[in-house]
Amino acid sequence: MSDATRSIASPPRRGRQGRPGRPGRPVGRDRLPALALVLAMIAVAFFALPLMGLLWKAPWSNAWSLLHKAGSLTALRLSIVCSLWATALSIMFGVPLAWLLARVEFRGRGIVRALCTLSMVLPPVVGGVALFFALGRRGFVGQYLDRWFDIRLPFTTAGVVVAQTFVAMPFLVLTVEAALRQFDRRFEDAARTLGASRWYVFRRVTLPAIRPALVAGAVLAWARALGEFGATITFAGNFPGTTQTMPLAVYLALESDPAQAIVLALVMIVMSFAVLIGLRDRWLGAVTTRSA
């Protein structure tokens, strides 16, 4: 789409022999310093090699039957459902939080920001234990949830979602906050002077402007939720069908049936890969080239 607009705007086309290159594509690609290229190659190999290791060890001949072995698909479904819930909750609470941190001046803002992103650096198992003390059956909030509302989070699917949201939301908050800070507030001010309500401005001016960051943040949060292990097994436990997500299934299968563990791991990788590539082209790629 942006290809077409650009070619109309700038009639002198590129050489006929060349492919109709994408606009905004760096011309001097081969001018990258040799050292940087070497380091970049090492980085690529660093990520590619472990993946190749999995592919190399994968039991291709009976992969299909291993995937259908008891529990695998249940764990996969549970992982998808829980990680999507965690992403939705992260967006619902994380965007207002990012807005608060980016736009509202208040004492102790730095402390609040550090507090809300602490779970990124906290070992997940510690996070799980902390959730126990707060929301467990004997936790200082959890005991009232249990007594008054009959809500118990440990050992439930809801507990998995809570654990995943706890570790995933900071990724969305930080990404969206950075975008809100970079966004030129004069657009919002202009809309306000034209009579738009605060909510209308947020929905029609601010939100579209930060959409790439929101999508990027949501993807990061989703990916983190999907791979969550430590907080989940500590806080929610491990039971097929209710709390055993893919990472837990992979971990337990590694002890009893390594071949099945590899198949499950590959399924997760393929799924994540598809999402990362798909979203990049559909959302992030398109938006960045347009704004560039």
Binding site: F132, G136, R137, R138, P154, F155, I233, A236, G237, N238, F239, P240, T243, Q244, Y251, L252, E255
Partner: peptide
């Protein structure tokens, strides 16, 4: 409610009252 990967996981969940 849960199948812990090691025995101490069971102990922790019981001693923590969960």
């Amino acid at each position: 409610k849960s199948l812990e990967d090691k025995v101490k996981g069971v102990v922790t969940k019981v001693t923590m009252g969960e």
